[in-house]
């Protein structure tokens, strides 16, 4: 086995782990604003890691440039979308969950 393939596999495994954790977080956290945290962070990193794994596997050429563009776009767009969601919810008066309250 090639070292590059192993490295790509490691990156993709780490990315899959973060995506699963993001999904679990979105299911487990008690309210909308806390769910923003896994959606904005772990999801972004997970996708970036998987795409980084694909780039390592593929080497440097036009395909990996496209992958890089996708990864960079996700890294800008994902937090922006999370911000837009949080801002819309905040503006429409969704109350943040406080410690000790019932989960919603």
């Amino acid at each position: 086995m090639d070292l590059r393939v192993v490295l790509a596999g490691l990156f993709m495994a780490a990315g899959c782990f973060f995506l699963i954790v993001a999904a679990i977080g979105i299911l487990r956290f008690p309210d909308f604003y806390t769910r923003m945290h896994p959606a904005g962070k772990a999801d972004t990193l997970g996708q970036a890691l998987i795409i980084a794994g694909l780039i390592i596997y593929w080497g440097i050429n036009l395909v990996s440039v496209k992958l890089l563009i996708i990864a960079l776009f996700i890294m800008v767009a994902n937090p922006t979308a999370a911000y837009a969601l949080a801002n819309a919810a905040y503006a429409s008066g969704v109350k943040p969950w406080k410690k000790g309250e019932e989960r919603k």
Partner: peptide, 21 residues
């Protein structure tokens, strides 16, 4: 809430991008 649903749909959408790649 509608925002939870939107959040989930957005997350599924970005996962779809990775899935397509």
């Amino acid at each position: 809430r509608v925002y939870d649903r939107l959040l989930a749909v957005n997350v599924i959408g970005t996962k779809t991008v990775v899935l397509l790649a």
